[in-house]
Structures are given as C-alpha cells and as structure tokens.
C-alpha cells in the first residue's frame, strides 16, 4: 500500500519538475483563472453601481467579490480540459495499451499526472482569497462552518475529478469527447453558480438547482464561505455533495471497467 502511494507521488513530483522547467508559464497559469474572475467581478460591480443596490440575491458588493474569488480558487483545482484531451488521445490511438502494461492503475496515474498545476494554483488561490477576505474586512467563517467549508471543498474537487475522468472515459465509445466537455462547461457555468449565484434565480428554481451536482461545484462551497447558509443548511448540502461524489465515482469506475473490456488497442 505504501509502495502504491509512493508510486503516484513520484508521478506527481516528476510532472511538477516538468512544469517548473517553464516558470513563466506557471506564473501565467496562476493568473489565468483570476482573469475570468476579474471579468465576472467587473460585470457585477457595474451592476451594483447601475442599480444603486446594496444587496443583490443576498450578496453585498463585498461578499460577492469574496464569493467569486472563493469559487475560482476551488475551480482551479479542476484537472481541466487537457486531462480529457490526453485521455481521449490515448484511448483512440491505442496508446492506452502502453499505460496498461505498467504496474500502475491508469485512473490514479492520470489524476496525479494532472495534479501539479491545480495544486500550485489552488494553494496560491487559497492564500490570495484569505488575504483579500481580511483586507476587505469580512469575517472568516467560524470554526464549525470552516470545517464544513473544508469538507465541501474536498467534495467539490472529488466531484470535479469524477466528472472530468468520466467524460474522458466516454472515449471508449465516442471518438471525439471534446464537444461533450464544452457542453458540460457551458451548462455548469450557469447552473453551478459560477456566473450568477443561484439565489438570483427564481425561488423554486434556486431550491432545485442547489440539490443538483452542478451546485456542488461552486455555489455550495462559495455560499458556505460567504455565510449564505445556516449551519444546518450547510450540513445538509455537504452531505448532498458527498452523496453525488460517491455516485459519480461509482459510475466512473464501473464505466472504466466496461470501457477496458471494449478497448481495441488499435494501431501498431
């Protein structure tokens, strides 16, 4: 077991070294997710100014900025489209065979290989969000809520990896999975609360959306951190998140096994 863990750690470290060869690129990768945040943030600041309101959908100007930064810092942990593209390429060209002949499981191998960028970006993001929260004079969540927030973030990351690997696994059946990834990104952009907090939707829609897996990707952790929920509400939502994570991982593993049975290892 120890050997197993060490193996994947080495994969992670090797990939990290690879990345450090291009330091300027790391810097740009760190900045990149926050460009999107700046864009969405600027739109909302304009909105607050135009409407003259102090509160939109339960968010003040200050809590809204913190919300945006929080969900962005969580989003950067996502393995990103590159991991899907890599999986798609390996499965359709048959290069997956080269992975299968090694004594390492493919899914964790892929996971650890794609982890360095989110790892660096996530840590930087966390520091940035904490500093900004303090600078903006907002209160950090109390101990219990903070614990729930951490559980929620871990559930989000777990869920993200399940979704990305799940889309990649579809390559066993579908030649091109890129459109599916784009489709997922578009839908989750709106339904996860990334573009617009779910409390802005009409009440019934908002209630329903909060229990779909998309909300787990942004709105739930962001809402917990900015105090949108009571402790009980937050607890229920974290349980929902973990339930979705368990269901999706179950699906991913089963589908992967099915896919391997179908794998043709063409080429060569």
């Amino acid at each position: 077991m120890k050997v197993m863990a060490g193996k994947y750690l080495v994969i992670f470290i090797t990939q990290m070294k690879n990345l450090l060869e291009y330091k300027i690129n790391i810097l740009l990768k760190l900045i990149r997710p926050f460009v999107m945040t700046a864009a969405v943030g600027s739109l909302w600041l304009v909105l607050f100014k135009l409407t003259g309101r102090d509160n939109i959908g339960g968010f003040t100007r200050q809590s809204f900025i913190i919300y945006l930064l929080t969900i962005r810092f969580i989003a950067v942990f996502s393995p990103g489209g590159a991991s899907i593209a890599e999986m798609n390429e390996e499965i359709r060209t048959g290069n997956l065979a080269m992975r299968l002949v090694r004594p390492a499981h493919y899914l964790p191998w892929l996971l650890f290989r794609n982890l360095p960028v989110p790892f660096i970006s996530g840590i930087t993001g966390l520091i940035l969000v904490s500093i900004l929260t303090v600078l903006l004079g907002a209160d950090l969540p109390k101990a219990g809520m903070m614990l729930l927030f951490v559980c929620s973030v871990i559930a989000t990351i777990t869920l993200q990896y399940a979704i990305y690997q799940g889309i990649g696994i579809l390559s066993f059946w579908i030649y091109e999975v890129f459109p599916i990834e784009r489709f997922y990104k578009s839908v989750s952009g709106l339904l996860s609360g990334e573009l617009i907090p779910l409390t802005i939707f009409p009440a019934t829609a908002s209630e329903v959306l909060q229990f779909l897996p998309f909300a787990s990707l942004a709105f739930i952790p962001g809402g917990i951190f900015t105090g949108v929920f009571t402790f009980e509400q937050a607890l229920v939502r974290v349980i929902v998140q973990w339930t979705w994570a368990a269901i999706l991982w179950g699906l991913v593993i089963t589908t992967y096994q099915r896919g391997l049975e179908k794998f043709e290892a063409q080429g060569g």
Binding site: F178, P179, R182, F183, S186, V187, L190, L195, I196, F201
Partner: peptide
C-alpha cells in the same frame, strides 16, 4: 456524432447566455 454533439452544445451555450440575462 461529434458534429451533431457540437451543434447541440452551440444551442445550449446560446440558450444559457439568454437565460443568464433573463434571470439577471
């Protein structure tokens, strides 16, 4: 298949932006 999935994705993306502005 990729072509048709992509069209579907285009439709959804446009619909999402329209929905976004509508809600807002």
């Amino acid at each position: 298949l990729g072509f048709y999935t992509f069209i579907f994705h285009q439709l959804v993306t446009a619909a999402i932006w329209l929905l976004f502005w509508k809600v807002l």
